[in-house]
Design a protein around this nucleic acid. Sequence first.
DNA 1: AAGCGAACCTGGCTGC
DNA 2: TGCAGCCAGGTTCGCT
Length: 293
Amino acid sequence: MPELPEVETVRRGLAPVMEGAVIDRVTLRRPDLRTPFPPAFARRLTGRRIVALGRRAKYLLADLDNANVLVMHLGMSGSFRIEAGDGQAIAGRYYHARSTLSAHDHVVFELSSGARIVFNDPRRFGMMDLVPRRGLEESRHFKEMGIEPLGNELSGRTIATLFRDRVAPLKAMLLDQHRIAGIGNIYACEAMWRARLSPTLPAGRLAAATPAARRKAEALAAAIRAVLEEAIVAGGSSLRDHRQATGELGMFQHNFAVYDREGEACSRHGCKGIIRRMVQSGRSTFYCPVCQC
DNA sequence: AAGCGAACCTGGCTGC
DNA sequence: TGCAGCCAGGTTCGCT
């Protein structure tokens, strides 16, 4: 499911009920997700107050009052849902009533606010870990992680530096979390279309010392920033199963220019192209063969 | 070392 | 209706 905009949407949904709440009880309904839960995971969380809920790339970070951070990743199919007692408002809003847990509800957090937070993940590519706040940046999840695309670092110059001498296709570089972190298959396709760049362009070409290359790198940086920001405003993209933690659907899928639109007309003004699908490093790439060159 | 492909796991959809 | 095959928003490992 979730790329940066979906994770940010989930964070914004969870923050009002999690921040300031104490974790009364944690239930693990299986021993692992993609990786095992760390030792004594539930016990170490119990009784802790959640100070803040943050995000780094596609990771959610719950800061705890004992200087540890609960690190969570949604993988491909992970989602959170917020439940409350019947008719009980939390932080001024109503949530779904408590439901019977289903087979893929793997983790349940019961909070002092009365909220119950359920993590569901059919494919179990998600992950949870507990890491000391000091040294978080050096932990295995974040040590090699690339820049935050909505932060100040992203620019044409940065892209040129990150892609210099790389011969791999642009699409593969955008998916490489060690360079820019948070972009996934949908937003890589959408950003390349917005910047009118070919997915097969050797990424290093954007680092050439020519005005044209500089313009392309700037266009790509602007496109990445714009598409991620617009998607966040729309509550992310709901394809099969992504929902916001509040249960609402994201709406950005209606704004896709290329993703999952094979065979449709390119929507760029004046372009007569037909959207095509190709496979790059095992993933579908959607693009317009006419205006992305 | 960089760049691929495969693997992890389940469910939904398509076509026979 | 049943079943095989393919595809899916991510990450990591292992092979060239």
